[in-house]
């Protein structure tokens, strides 16, 4: 599904320490370095290294990118409730929300790909730290402008040495989990009233 516009805006959000920025970096590396797109990856964060809300944006385009941030993301990946609540209203009405149901219990829209990323990470890899890569895998399956191979290569290049295997396993687990989702069954819009 999604976007053949030249400019795609994607946002990952969650709490500090969930690997939000790493997920965005791997996506940017895959799309930019391996798939040959223009990419811009930015983040905003507070003073906390752990906790607090954290967001990371990736803009992917077939043309040179001017404004580097996502102002109206078409894909929003929320890894916890606080960040889901905070950034949901930024989501493009025609976009798609992706949430980690391990932590996001109150889902604000029916147009959502809901999967328990953290639980999958624990079950498949034994390490909840890999939830970000599970989410990225699921995202990668739903977002057709990046290839699975590029995501895997980018992951191997970017994650800390010694964690490649766990993260790769997580990425693939996320891709598999997303295969069971049927986006056609979802409502067409995130928020009816806004259109």
């Amino acid at each position: 599904m999604i976007e053949n516009d030249y400019r795609n805006e994607i946002r990952f959000c969650g709490s500090g320490g969930q690997g939000i920025i790493m997920a965005a970096i791997v996506l940017a590396e895959a799309a930019g370095v391996y798939d040959g797109k223009y990419v811009c990856q930015t983040q905003s964060y507070g003073p906390e290294a752990r906790g607090g809300t954290c967001k990371a944006d990736v803009v992917i385009s077939s043309k040179e990118i001017d404004y580097p941030k996502a102002s109206r993301p078409t894909l929003l990946v929320a890894m916890n409730q606080a960040s889901c609540d905070k950034y949901f209203l930024d989501l493009n009405p025609k976009g798609l929300l992706i949430v980690d149901t391990t932590y996001v219990k109150k889902v604000p829209t029916g147009r959502v790909a809901a999967l328990p990323f953290t639980r999958i990470a624990r079950q498949e890899t034994g390490n909840t730290m890999a939830a970000n890569m599970v989410a990225l895998g699921a995202f990668g399956h739903l977002y057709k402008n990046v290839t699975a191979k590029s995501l895997e290569d980018a992951l191997m290049a970017r994650v800390p040495k010694g964690t490649e295997e766990v993260n790769l396993l997580a990425l693939r687990a996320g891709m598999d989990a997303a295969k069971h989702l049927d986006l056609c069954a979802l409502p067409q819009l995130v928020r009816e009233e806004e259109v």
Binding site: I25, A28, E29, G32, V33, Y34, D35, G36, K37, V39, Q41, S62, T147, K149, S150, D153
Partner: peptide, 14 residues
């Protein structure tokens, strides 16, 4: 669109 997925030479994300 380049879908080869091959790493392009001298291109770095930084």
């Amino acid at each position: 669109m380049n879908r080869t997925g091959a790493k392009r030479k001298n291109i770095l994300l930084m």
